[in-house]
């Protein structure tokens, strides 16, 4: 009985928290169906006659499939690249006993902490010299530098929790050390890998300054178009912003929900 009660209390708390996290986004989504005279009125309204004019408006002003494609490419590309760099790096740092590991990890973090103001202009000129300015690559490479540090740190702490003895046993059984990493260590930190991937994907998906600066009209992602949809100084585009937000939130939630079955416990099932 008390176990049921505690489950009920837990779920209520989770639902309440979800409400807090979702309500502001739901409000933004809702503005898509409002005529703009209803969005900014006093006192503020919650009911209105829904209209789909805002969707028609963004469809005629933006190449929506192109924008979505750019967002998908940018976030998938940055995520893959950061995982490819970050997971091995985190593993190596966790397994080495040399002092330089800590220094490298610390340096990666410090690099992540450098404000974009310093790097943006040199990076822009660098990309121009490589002929990558205005392409997706420029943004992917930039995001991957920041996210690699993030993945490395996440995997660093995850691999540290895996006792090296397990791998030693596998090596004795005839595994190469890479095999031990791939077949033994990696599956054990699956939750962390999925969590890191999800967060990388979201960082890249919501990134604004880098793509605004490094892309052109034809390679622009949704995060930048959102602000364009909102409009300039004198016109308020809450409705357009809300309509665009459907595209910028729903796909990423769908992907996240698809990944969620891998978000299982590693060594243990949680006890409660």
């Amino acid at each position: 009985m008390s176990r049921r009660l505690s489950l009920l209390a837990q779920r209520t708390a989770i639902v309440l928290a979800l409400g807090l996290f979702l309500a502001p986004v739901l409000w933004l989504i809702m503005t898509a169906y409002e005529p703009s005279r209803a969005i900014q009125s006093t006192p503020p309204l919650l009911w209105f006659k829904p209209s789909f004019a805002n969707f028609a408006s963004i469809a005629s002003n933006f190449d929506l499939s192109r924008l979505t494609l750019s967002s998908v490419v940018l976030s998938a590309g940055s995520t893959l690249l950061s995982l490819c760099f970050g997971i091995p790096c985190g593993y190596a740092l966790a397994r080495t006993r040399s002092r330089s590991a800590v220094i490298i990890a610390y340096a990666l973090l410090a690099i992540r902490g450098v404000p974009t103001v310093v790097t943006l202009i040199p990076f822009y000129l660098f990309m121009q010299r490589l002929g990558l300015l205005g392409t997706w690559w420029a943004v992917i490479l930039m995001n991957a530098t920041l996210s690699t540090a993030f993945v490395t740190w996440m995997m660093f702490s995850a691999f540290q929790a895996v006792p090296p003895e397990i791998e030693a046993a596998a090596t004795l059984d005839g595994c190469t050390s890479f095999g031990a990493f791939r077949r033994v260590a990696l599956p054990l930190v699956q939750t962390s890998v999925i969590a890191a991937a999800l967060l990388c994907m979201m960082f890249a998906w919501n990134d604004f300054l880098n793509p605004a600066f490094l892309t052109r009209a034809e390679t622009r992602p949704l995060s930048v178009a959102l602000l364009t949809a909102f409009g300039g100084n004198t016109t308020s585009g809450w409705g357009n912003l809300g309509a665009m937000a459907h595209l910028s939130t729903l796909p990423i939630i769908a992907v996240a929900l698809l990944l969620n079955r891998y978000l299982v416990s590693g060594l243990t099932r949680g006890i409660h």
Binding site: L120, I121, Y124, Q128, A212, F213, R216, A217, L227, T228
Partner: peptide, 20 residues
């Protein structure tokens, strides 16, 4: 090809373009 940008992005971007 018209590339529509917010005020701040436009300013930063074209200035960098000119300077570089």
């Amino acid at each position: 090809l018209v590339d529509i940008l917010g005020y701040g992005e436009l300013q930063t971007k074209i200035t960098t373009d000119y300077v570089g």
